[in-house]
């Protein structure tokens, strides 16, 4: 690994360390609570809270490495959640007892995958830009969410499920495990498999990839199915515990996920990015949220700070990539 890549991939982790130090130090003066910020349980909780956006952001990384974007993940997330909770109330499912749980999960994940496949197919077959396609389906899927149960929340608490979701294995919460395992698998996919390498090639130089015989359409389809699946997985993880979904849930998740991915250094134009760095981006955002709360800042400041950091990152990235004073002033 060259120095440059080390620097690029290390930046987000360095930022996390800075955050940790800052909030620990500032917290010891300003903190409203007695516990230290770097408290172990606090950190575990942080990982757990990172999971819903985190799992989506992992998928978004791959979509963005492809040079696409998916704005519909928030709505997919909500619809998968509704299917998860509602399916458990179906008569035949209730008759199955706790065996209904894996089936409900399956239905939810299937929903997400199908919604992703719809996006993917449209992108492939119509040639319309993914931004527009998913902008449309963001509205459309949200409409489906409302059509399912009107403006009423959909609720179903299954205590077995709640126990499972709240369980801790080796100290880590279930949600954290899902996040980490998903990250590991996707990291392997992106670095070790042909599909992953092709994803980089397509985002980097699509024409070259096409000329080399990589079938871009099906490739996009797979990745949109993947992000749909992950959005549903994220819903499964979160709503297994909470047991109630509002039709507006998941709104703006797409924007949070994109923020995390960009903080992790993935290029908007595609071709460059890493799953691990996105994980860093997700954790950095969650740290910021918790940290600001810890030092007594209003929770609303978080939005302000994250927004400005996002812009600052963009600015720094551009400054670092300048070719110097000779460049064309275009």
């Amino acid at each position: 690994m060259s120095k440059e890549t080390l620097f690029k991939q290390g930046a987000i982790w360095a930022f996390i360390v800075v955050e940790l130090i800052f909030f620990s130090v500032a917290g010891s003066y300003l903190s409203v609570s007695d516990s230290a910020f770097m408290d172990f349980d606090n950190m575990l909780l942080l990982l757990k809270q990172s999971a819903p956006i985190g799992i989506i952001a992992l998928g978004m990384t791959i979509i963005m490495i492809n040079g696409n974007i998916d704005l519909s993940v928030g709505a997919t997330y909500a619809l998968a959640a509704i299917v998860l909770l509602d399916s458990m109330t179906w008569p035949f499912m209730q008759a199955m007892g706790d065996w209904a749980i894996p089936l409900a999960w399956f239905f939810a994940l299937l929903t997400g995958t199908v919604l992703g496949a719809i996006n993917g197919l449209i992108v492939w077959k119509t040639g319309v830009d993914a931004f527009i396609v998913t902008l449309g389906s963001m509205l459309g899927y949200r409409g489906l969410v409302f059509m399912y149960n009107g403006e009423q929340p959909t609720s179903h608490l299954n205590w077995t499920l709640v126990d499972f979701a709240e369980a801790q294995f080796l100290g880590l919460h279930t949600a954290t495990w899902f996040l980490l395992v998903a990250a590991l698998i996707l990291w392997l996919v992106m670095t070790k498999t042909v599909h992953g390498r092709n994803a980089y090639a397509i985002g980097n130089n699509r024409e070259a990839a096409v000329n080399a015989g990589i079938r871009v359409g099906p490739h996009f389809l797979w990745n949109f199915m993947l992000i749909g699946f992950l959005a549903a997985l994220s819903a499964v993880v979160f709503y297994s515990e909470s047991g109630s979904v509002n039709p507006n849930d998941g709104m703006l998740y797409e924007l949070w996920a994109i923020t995390a991915v960009v903080l992790g250094g993935t290029k908007l134009s595609g071709g460059y990015g890493s799953i691990i760095s996105t994980l860093g981006g997700v954790i950095a955002i969650q740290l910021l949220r918790k940290g600001l709360g810890h030092i007594g800042a209003d929770t609303e400041t978080v939005n302000l700070v994250i927004g400005l950091i996002l812009i600052a990152v963009l600015f720094l990235d551009r400054q670092l990539n300048r070719t110097g004073k000779e460049e064309l002033k275009i």
Binding site: L255, I306, G307, L310, I311
Partner: peptide, 14 residues
């Protein structure tokens, strides 16, 4: 895209 995404969040905070 990123600037206005950031500003979406920042202005919301404001």
């Amino acid at each position: 895209l990123i600037v206005t995404l950031g500003m979406l969040s920042a202005i919301h905070g404001l």
